[in-house]
Design a protein around this nucleic acid. Sequence first.
RNA 1: GCCCGAGUGGCGGAAUGGCAGACGCGCUCGACUCAAAAUCGAGUGCCCAAAAGGCAUGUGGGUUCGAGUCCCUCCUCGGGCACCA
Length: 835
Amino acid sequence: METRRAYPFPEIEARWQRHWLENKTFRAADPGESGSERPKFYVLDMFPYPSGAGLHVGHPEGYTATDIVARYKRMRGFNVLHPMGWDAFGLPTERYAIQTGIHPREATRRNIETFRRQIRALGFSYDWDREFSTTDPDYVRWTQWIFLQLYRQGLAYVADAPVWFCPALGTGLANEEVINTPDGPRSERGDHPVERRTLRQWMLRITAYADRLLRDLELVDWPENIKEMQRNWIGRSEGAEVDFRTALGDAVTVFTTRPDTLFGATYMVLAPEHPLVPALTTPDQRGAVEAYVAAAARKTDIERTDLAREKTGVFTGAHAINPVFSDGDPRARIPIWVADYVLATYGTGAIMAVPAHDERDWEFAEKFGLEIVEVVVAPGASPSPGRPAQCFPGEGIAAHSGPITGLPTAEAKERICDWLEQRGAGRRRVNYKLRDWLFSRQLYWGEPFPILWRGGEHVPVGESELPILPPDLDDFKPTPDGRPPLARATDWVQVDPRTTRETNVMPNWAGSCWYYLRYIDPKNERAFVDPAKERYWMGDGGVDLYVGGAEHAVLHLLYARFWHKVLFDIGLVSSPEPFRRLINQGIILGEDGQKMSKSRGNVINPDVVVDEFGADSFRLYEMFMGPLEQSKPWSTQGIKGVHAFLARVWRLFVREDDETGRREPSPSITDAGPCDDDLRLLHRTIRKVTDDLDGMRFNTAISALMVWVNETMKAGAGGRPIPRAVALDFVRLLAPFAPHLAEELWALLGQSPSIALQPWPAAEEKYLKEENVEIVVQINGKVRDRLSVPAGTPPEEIDAAARALPKISAALEGSRLIKAVAVPGRLVNFVIAPK
RNA sequence: GCCCGAGUGGCGGAAUGGCAGACGCGCUCGACUCAAAAUCGAGUGCCCAAAAGGCAUGUGGGUUCGAGUCCCUCCUCGGGCACCA
C-alpha cells in the first residue's frame, strides 16, 4: 500500500537525529559542569530487554511520554538526566543461543544494535554517552560488588530450597517463569512440564526489610494500586504465637491473627512437613499419617492450593493443651491433625483451628465432624443457643471466653496477649507473607557469583578481582546431571586444588536493581557511583519520574527498593527510596482490541509505522490515543489523522517550490504585530498545553495544538496573516511532541538550533480573560436561552438580565417562581411550578 | 472468594457538581479533478419529514436548584491476590 508522503519527514527526521547526536544536544550536566546550577530532573524509562523480536509498539509509548516530559523540563530550565540502556542477561537470549548456536554475547550484541537503531529512529532525547548494558564487564563488576556488600551485611546466604526445576530446559526457574495449566505447572518458555526439586540455592534476606519496604511506601508518589499490590505481597499481619503443651513435653507453637478466639480452638492442625509430626503421631495412626505426608510431598504447591479442592487431613492420635483453660478443664484438650491446607512456610507451620470463626477451619471441621464452639458474636446479635449455624469470621464481641468475655475484638486481642505474655504461654508477633528472595539460577547467561568454595565453606572473591566473567563456553547447555552450565568449565571452576568457584549465576533482576544509579556515573572505575554525583541526581527523593509497565509492579520494583535500602543503610546512597514518582503506561492492544501477539497476527511493527508516517507521527499518535495509564487499541486510521495534522502544520508554515524544491517560510507569516484575537488564542493554547504537560495529559495537550491550527487556518482563509512571534511560540509548544518537525520549522523561520534548548513560552493572564461570557439560562434545569454579559457581572444583574429575555419572562409569567440560582460566569436556573 | 480500576456516539476519547460528546477517526454532502487520491469547506448522539420538542453517560435508587462527576444497590469488563491462619 503506497501512501503519498504528506510532508518530507524522512529527510527532516534523519537530519535532526544526526544533528542531536553529533552535537550532544541532550548531554546532562554533572555537578561542577556548566548547566548543573539549574535544578535537576531525573526522568527514567524502564530499560528494555533487547529480544530478538525487536522493538514492540508498546515500548515507545512510555518512552515517548518520558521524552516529552524530558524535553519540556529542559525548556522549563531544568538540567535533565534522561538515559537509556539494556537489560540483557537472561533466559530468552540463552535459549536462542542454544537453538541457533550463536553465542549469547553475540546475540545480545546484535539485539542491542537493533533496539538502539529502532529507538534512535524515534528521536528520543537520551544522553547516549551514558548508555550501557547490564552485560558489560564493567557493569557486571559493580553488580557483583554490590552483591558482596549484601553478603557482608549477612543478607546473602545459602540454603536448600525447593525450586521449580524444568528437566527439558535443564534449569531451575523462578516462580514468575512458571505458569499453571490444566496439565499442571509448565515453563513459560517452551511449555515444558516442571517439577519441584530441592536444590542448594543462594537466598537474599529481603524479609529483614519487610517492615521498611511496607512503611516507606508512604514516602513515594506511586499509583495507589501498585502500592496496594506491594502491600499485599509483603502481607504483614499482626497476631500472636501461642504455645500448646503436648504429651511429648515439647510445646507446639501456633501463629494466629485472632488470639481473641483462643477459647474457640477445638483442634489443631500441623502442616505435613512440620518437624514434630513424626514424634507426635501415635502408633495406631502412624500408617495413615505417613501415607498422607508422603502423598502431600508429591503434590505441587499449585495442586495443594487449588481452592476447588476438598480439604483433606488425618488425625495424629495426639492431643494438645490449650493454655487459656485451667488444669482439668475438659475444653483444654484438643486433637492434633495433619492437613495440607496449613502451609509449612508461613508462621510456625501449625495453627489452632477455630471453626466457628474461620471459613477454612469451618469447612474442615464440617467434613471431619469436629467440634465447633462459638466465641465471638456479631455486634447486636445474641450467642447461638447450641452449635452455630454458620461461620462468622468478622469482628464482634467475645463470648464464652473467660476473662475477655464481653470485650470487642480489638480489645479482646490486647487483653489475651497481655495474659499470654504474663504467663509465658505466648507472645505478640508480626508475620509477613513475603519470603526470602531465591537469588540463583542454573544458567549460563548471567552474572556469576563472586564466591569461592573452600572446604565446604563459601568465601567472597576479593573486590580487586572483579568482575568475574562467565568463562567462554562452546556448549552452554545445562549439564545432563542438572548442574549449572558453568560447571562444564572445569578450568574456570577449579581455581586451585582446594578451591572451586560457585557455578550458579544471578537472576536477571540483579542488573535492573541498580541501573538507575549507574546512569549517574556510567564510566566510573573506582566506584559504582560517585557520591557527589549521586547526591546531586538522587538527593531529594530519587528519580523524579519513572515510567514503565505495571507487570513490574511487584518484582522489579520491590527488589530494586530492597537493594536501594541496603545501599542507603551502608551510606552509599542518599535517599531511602529510589523512585519518587512512578507512572504505569497502559498496554497497546491490536487493532482488533485484543492483546498483540504473533499468533493473532495483529502485531504492529514500529519500523513499518515510522517508515510510512515518520517518527513524529508515531510519537504524536501514541500520545493522542488516550490517557497514558490506560490500555487502548491501535488504529491505522488514527495515525493517519495525526499525520495529516503534522502535514497541515507543515503547509501552514512552509512554501515549497514544486520545481526547485526550494523551501521558504509561508508568505502568510509576517512581521506584523499580533492582534488581540491572535494573542488570546495563543495564550489560551500556551496555558492549556502547559497545564496538560504538568499533569501528563498528553492527549488533551495535543488536541489544544490541533485547535490552534484549526483556528489559525480559519483566520487565514479570511485573509489574516500569522505574526512571526506567534508562529515561533506555537513551534515551541509543538517541540516536545514532534521534535523533528519543530526543529525544522524553527530553523526555517530563521532561528538557530536547537529549539530543544529554548525557553518555554509563558501564558500571560491579561490575554486569558474573556471580555464577554455566555450565560446559560435554564428553567427547571433545562437550557431555554442564553445571554452574553461582560465578564464579572454580579449574580443579581445576571438574574435581572435573564428575566428580561422574552422566552423567560413568558415562562415566568404563567407560573410560580420557587427559586432562582445565579452562578456568575456560568448560568441562571429558575425553578418554577404551575400556578 | 477477596482487593483494586473502568463502563460516555459507529470507533479512540473530552468534560473545577453548571450548555454531555472538546480533539481525532469514520461517514454524508459540496469544491478542485477527465477521474481517483490528496487537499479545502459544510454537516454528523438518538427519536421526529423539519422545526418545536423529547430522550440520552452500564442498571436501579438517593443527595442537590442542577449529577457523567458525590452516596448506596446490582450487572459487565479489565488487572492483581488467592487455604498466608
